[in-house]
Amino acid sequence: MKLTKYILLLPVFLFLLSCQKADEQIAKADALLAEIDPKRLENGIYLIIPNAGCGGCISDAENVFSQYKHKKELKAIFTAFTSKKGLKIHLAELFYSQNVIIDDGNLVSKKQLLTIYPVALWIENRKVTQVKHFSPQEADTHHQVITYLQK
Score class of each variant (00 low, 15 high):
Ser83Asp: 14
Phe65Lys: 04
Thr79Ile: 13
Gln67Lys: 09
His70Phe: 08
Asp60Tyr: 05
Lys85Arg: 10
Lys88Gln: 15
Asn63His: 07
Gln67Asn: 06
Glu73Leu: 07
Ile58Cys: 07
His90Ile: 05
Glu62Met: 12
Lys75Pro: 12
Asn63Thr: 07
Leu94Glu: 09
Ala76His: 05
Tyr96Trp: 01
Ala61Leu: 12
Ile89Thr: 02
Lys69Arg: 09
Ile89Asp: 05
Thr79His: 13
Phe78Met: 14
Val100Lys: 02
Asp103Phe: 00
Tyr68Ile: 14
Tyr68Pro: 15
Phe81Val: 12
Thr79Asn: 13
Lys69Ile: 14
Thr79Lys: 10
His90Cys: 02
Gly56His: 01
Cys57Tyr: 01
Val64Asn: 03
Phe78Trp: 14
Tyr96Gln: 13
Ser97Pro: 00
Lys71Gln: 13
Glu93His: 01
Leu91Tyr: 07
Ala61Thr: 13
Thr82His: 10
Ala92Lys: 03
Lys75Trp: 04
Phe95Trp: 03
Phe81His: 04
Lys88Ile: 06
Phe78Gln: 14
Ser97Ile: 00
Leu74His: 07
Ala61His: 10
Leu91His: 05
Gly86Gln: 13
Thr79Glu: 10
Gln67Ser: 13
Ser97Asp: 06
Ser97Val: 00
Asp103Glu: 05
Lys84Arg: 11
Tyr68Arg: 10
Glu62Pro: 01
Thr79Tyr: 11
Asp60Lys: 03
Ala61Gln: 11
Val100Leu: 06
Leu91Gly: 10
